[in-house]
Design a protein around this nucleic acid. Sequence first.
DNA 1: ACTCTACTATTCCTAACCGGAAGACCTTCG
DNA 2: CGAAGGTCTTCCGGTTAGGAATAGTAGAGT
Lengths: 200, 200
Amino acid sequence: MSQDRGLPATSYAVLGLLTFGRELSGYELKQWADSTLRFYWTAPAMSQIYTELKRLAERGLVLAREVDGGPSRTTTRYRVSAKGTRALRRWLADSDPGFPLLKHPIALRLLLGHLLDPAQVREMLEAYDAALAAQRRDLRAVLDGIDNEPAFEFPAHVARWGLSYYDSEEDAVRRVLSALPEPLPRRAQADGASGTGPAR
Amino acid sequence: MSQDRGLPATSYAVLGLLTFGRELSGYELKQWADSTLRFYWTAPAMSQIYTELKRLAERGLVLAREVDGGPSRTTTRYRVSAKGTRALRRWLADSDPGFPLLKHPIALRLLLGHLLDPAQVREMLEAYDAALAAQRRDLRAVLDGIDNEPAFEFPAHVARWGLSYYDSEEDAVRRVLSALPEPLPRRAQADGASGTGPAR
DNA sequence: ACTCTACTATTCCTAACCGGAAGACCTTCG
DNA sequence: CGAAGGTCTTCCGGTTAGGAATAGTAGAGT
């Protein structure tokens, strides 16, 4: 009963994934989480997913069904139960969301910039910039896959939100870079088109 | 030896805090972390701080010193050792930072917006907007405390980065709000400039 | 047909982490 | 003096997360 309140957000995240589309196996759920949930939540570890599914099944929030996937193979697929949908609605409506939690390893390292030489800091920030671009592409692809699909209106909002976050991060990185002491491009190399160049 | 590699980022975060200022007690360290680290990393629990300090001391990365705080009172204060600074530098230079991890409960809930009615969604977003403003104020205060202090050049960069993040979040929230269906301000209030309006 | 690799599917072990409780002293202020 | 609130630290139990281990299955190449 009141235990249902006690579930961590990740449980509801998994449960929530099941409110789209269909019956999924733990493995498929993980794929899904990796490709979507990871942008604004954690993509739970495999083990985590299975743990959650077990717990959700115990409480009757999801229904498990055995499907055979070969002679000596049996896959368990899950779908939300009506009770699960209710629990999810209640959670969405009643619980305090709290404030976002950011674990930003680049910012953490930048904080300690006084222990590094400027070139290393630049390098790190440029690598982050590249990683951002890649991440942005991935999310863009997700959005392109669902945009204009009425069933995914809210996921699309979230995806756009995420994109704007990446944009803002790129700006922030650039701002820090330009506030850093010059990299002294003493060598007569034609820069501007090289590695660090502000592509895009 | 190679164990030093194995430390989690939070260990280095604590160690890093000690590279500013002076000798700190676990308790003071917690205060510090709460007021600064929490904006872009986690503020570790008390117990966590003490656990880290013990571990760091074991490995010789911090030096503990007993200080008396009264007749039968003894406080342990910690400072980085030379070895600790070296380990930190090595970590900063060599380890892969990885990508930021965001746990965004608002985005997670928005994703499941199809399970809620629009009014609830609006309410949630507006509450988040307010929380953002408060958080922003706190961070602004931190920045004001260290800005223009050369010793805190990098923390200041990080703080400005954080502020720009909050700004971008505010924009994103507003954008979502204005894309949501009208709240139907049926009461004879002059709408057109009301509720959803892009105030500020 | 045989092996190699990659994918599907799940479980187990261990480390990281959190939050609360508890115990202690110390200072301040009514 | 006594209560309240701040400093300081440890212990505990539980949850979460990550990585490795296991194991069957399907396809690709030789």
